[in-house]
Amino acid sequence: MRPAKTTLLFITGIAFITILAISPITIQNRETILYASTTTSLYNTGLLDYLASNYRKTIGEKVDINFIAVGSGEALERAARGDVCLVFVHAPRLEAKYLANGTLTHHHIIAYNYFAIVGPTNDPAGVNQSHNTIEAFTKIVKAGNEGKAIFVSRGDRSGTNLKEKEIWDKVGYVPSPDTDKWYIVSGQGMSNTLLIAEELKAYTLTDTGTFLKLKKEGQLPHLQILYTESPDLINIYSVYLVSTCEGRQRNVSLDFIHYIVNHQNLIAAYGISEYGQPLFYPAKDSIEWLQEKWSEITAQG
């Protein structure tokens, strides 16, 4: 065999050549590279990629927009550390904290839809006949205590989980898996949590996008939407510029925000061909009402 030193040098050489060879993947010529963090549930609907590819077509220069799909908490934490220029989130209470500490600026509400309470088709708690969200949740508590219902919570401080906590606060009863046998905390993302609810014939709170997608694929035969479209269940999607973002990236980020705000028809039409109903409502027509709702939610936090 070769002497050890030569062999090692040879291996080192190969390693460095490979490192250089895969560099062009990242260092593209004169392109503005933009990083945006977002929540997984929003990223998974494909809306952001759709908006970004439409935006790229309208501008002359090369812009590369990359989405980092993580939980709401991590998305905002990455912003606080200056590792992204844009944040797309739906967790007003968390957002308010990062607005207050100066991480985020240029808040724009871009879209909204409604969270939905989904549950087994036979609806043992009678959520279907509720007049408001608080009544629906109270019914689940009652049926839970009687051993007739189970509720699966994500428990991961995601936008959806924060909404759920917000509702429990309004109900005036915050269930805990230690004392409430009917209350299960999955600690997982929306898809997995829905699949757990399907297995257990349980109730859960979900965003409509994820539910419709899994329902369409036939993975949730026993679950259906029982209560939604109530003002209490509003799901507000916002975009922010991160204040540490500078130079070209800042300009392009602001331009992209501007594009989204002014091309709300793209959002309104998104998902209709695939799901037979829109996944999001554009924010523009009801922006004042949404801002009021947004402030209401953060004030309770």
């Binding site: 993947i25 990242t26 990083y35 997984t40 998974n44 990629d49 990359n66 989405f67 980092i68 799909a69 993302g189 929306m190 898809s191 997995n192 829905l194 699949l195 994820t210 997608k213 899994l214 694929e217 993975q219």
Partner: peptide, 21 residues
């Protein structure tokens, strides 16, 4: 960061697929 076309590896792609069901 699991960036599409850049840093998406088999394991991060699996994690994303699982999160999408």
């Amino acid at each position: 960061g699991n960036l599409e076309g850049k840093t998406r590896t088999i394991t991060t792609a699996i994690a994303l697929d699982v999160s999408m069901g």
